[in-house]
Nucleic acid binder design. Sequence first.
RNA 1: GUGCCCGUAGCUCAAUGGAUAGAGCAUCAGCCUUCUAAGCUGAGGGUUACUGGUUCGAGUCCAGUCGGGCGCACCA
Length: 552
Amino acid sequence: MHSFFFPLIQTALVAAGVATEKPIQIEQPSDKKFGDFSTNIALLAAKECRRNPRELAQDIIKHLQFQPDTVSKIEVAGAGFINFYLAPVFIMRSVEKVLENGDEFGKGCTGKGQKAVVEYVSANPTGPLTIGRGRGGVLGDCIANLLETQGYNVTREYYFNDAGRQMQILAESVQLRYLELCGRESEFPATHYQGEYIREIAETIYAEHNTALQESSDLSFFKKSAETTIFASIRKTLERVGIKHNSFFNEHTLYHADENGITANQRVIEALKAMNFIAEYDGATWFLTTKLGQEKDKVLIKSSGEPSYRLPDIAYHVTKFERDFEMIVNVFGADHIDEYPDVLEALRILGYDTSRIKIAINQFVTTTVDGQTLKMSTRKGNADLLDDLIDDVGADATRLFFIMRGKDSHLNFDVDLAKKQSKENPVFYLQYAHARICSLLRMALQETGFDPATCKEYHLLQLLSSPAELQLGFALLNFPDMVKASLRLLEPQKMVEYLHSLAELFHRFYQECPILKAESDICKARLFLSVATRQVLQNGFRILGVSAPQSM
RNA sequence: GUGCCCGUAGCUCAAUGGAUAGAGCAUCAGCCUUCUAAGCUGAGGGUUACUGGUUCGAGUCCAGUCGGGCGCACCA
């Protein structure tokens, strides 16, 4: 709707002789009595025009040109707001568009087919996925969905590392457990992976090889075995909650020499060296972040000769530019918050346009079971597992709960609430609205023969004029703007809230307006409104990755 | 100590710098011989942690204070 009002207001400003640099803001007042849309342009421009804002607003609306079948009323209110009231006919005509566009309603083309990459999950295969990772995973998946609706060509990427020290420790952990099974008692170091899954992997190895490997000093078999098993479990878990990837980027490729015998990591070092941001001291190679005002330099190559995680991180992001991504979204947890500023600085120094990079950081998750809040502990083997949560509350509740709070807020995941089959549980509240419409339409087909697939008398919608009907219709035409806002803020939570309010408006309409018992044309019109609501619910659910049940 | 996030109704959370700060849950009062009551209607409940500042206007922006979370490795 922004694109609808914007040019008209701009024209009116020119016609009224108002010259202002201030942006035209169009908002939806919180209270319906202030109209369906409103602009504060008169307030913003008043000062530079040296005029009273209310008078200025009066002047502007004199020059606003609207057809009476789109805007029914324009008025000046408060300190100088200009409020617009949409004509009922216009709202209902918009509902027709929902029906005509179907699955496509809400999609846009701002992406223009540009390449976008969203990186999410990116957990190394050292253990099963935790609940904390799950939140970021769902967030990333929804952001990727949002980008796709806006016409981006999206790569959903998982960046992982199957080399390095953590994998070494993993391999040692499995080996130690294996040796225990072979009857060799040893002290299991506290630094190693304590989880039960390590024993299970060791048991599998023992079952296949018995004690044959106990004299082997080669860890690679244990590493490979652990990696394969764990990665399979991670991917299975991701699949269960509908978190999809179509690209797995192995950090190891950054260590491979190209045709000139140089690795991606080395290229980064050379490039930064050319910009005088590299120094060697204490046996290591450093990124001179002190030159950028930071307190300490950062190690890129350790004195052992191995790159620290920072170097491949930079090299990895260079590949995102080399792969021509116009939009680069990184999703990660708050524990990695210190990671990205260095990467961004390095990329900036190397001449890349870092404004293409958007960072979405999600805060942590605690779970509440039986009213008791459990704190997550990492790497101790007693971390909350995403798989257990899915077993407990199902995939839909898992997804929706992860994104129904702002990503910047700590999430308190109430497991008991997520299991409840009632209005208290927002998952059921949303899905119930959809199921209720499906049920209604089944009944309609049975009793009146109404079939939305064949009956296309959408113009009947214009017969509807009650507040409940108009508010529902208005909410429907807002959907495309809500999709755009969710994407702009990288915040699927906006979509959850919108769908919740849509469900609420439908339930009210359903309560107040008899549908099947209404006179024939009104009945059809109300069924069309219901079908349109179901369509928007489905389109929204698809973005969130939540199922739309036909009955409950 | 320091960087980032958070502090809003009893609880969980909303509010692109806008108008009287909103939902849900919980509490209380109503609505099913009628399309799914897994629903709807209404009521009560607030010094937006605190103190200053910026401006037509601040929960929102800035500074400081107090609380809570997460980081601060030659781990990732």
